[in-house]
Amino acid sequence: MITFNQVSKRYSSGFEALKQVSFELEKGEMAFLTGHSGAGKSTLLKLIAAIERPNSGSVLVNNQNVSALKRAALPYLRRNLGIIFQDHKLLFDRNVFDNVLLPLQICGFDHRESSKRVRAALDKVGLLKREKTNPIALSGGEQQRLCIARAIVNRPSILLADEPTGNLDAEYAQEIMNIFKSFHQVGVTLLISTHDAGVLRDNQIRVIALKQGEIQTSTATPISDEQHVEQTCLPTHPATEENEPA
């Protein structure tokens, strides 16, 4: 479903975000993308959605080389992806319902069908009762769930999430993870970047670990606690603080 072939990305500032990254994510697979901040997690996700373009190598999504896509073709790639942004990117000039409606408006769904889908998506993330609320009045966890609802309302086959549990406490984080797992169960391909040790420990899922722009490990089996301590920066988890790598 998603294939990276020797992908390198250098920003115009000269910073090398990704170096010769290769990996493959099967259809229906779910994986965590881990690493320090600055390890290249966000860049990797942006390359999949063609928000950034690689300097070399190729990124294939659905056997389509997205790094070579023309600008005019990008919208149609992105409609097939659900993206959960690190900074949420919610619109505060409209209510919860209209935020989730936006992707459907863009795709040109008719009014009745889109209302149905918006409510279904809000129900899935437990925000159905808040549809008239302005997102600014939502808690951090609720905003995150709203962001998920907007990403899934279009029923994409691939879901990308950039630090979806970043500022949430453990309980909320696990709630979000459970939502992702339910998508995984219905065949959605998921790639979730995180540096949340708790999330990694509690979920037995494949981990792709990045370090300074290179893939360190890409395990098909869940990693042990010790391994991911070395690979990830874990500021939020008390158990790992003393072991944090220099």
Binding site: A49, I51, A72, P75, Y76, L77, R78, R79, L81, I83, F85, K89, L91, F92, D93, L102, P103, I106, C107, R150, N154
Partner: peptide, 16 residues
């Protein structure tokens, strides 16, 4: 600007 940015990121065409 926010709306334009977000719309572009989630698949809006330039025409939209």
């Amino acid at each position: 600007d926010d709306e334009i940015q977000v719309s572009g990121l989630i698949g809006a065409t330039d025409a939209f």
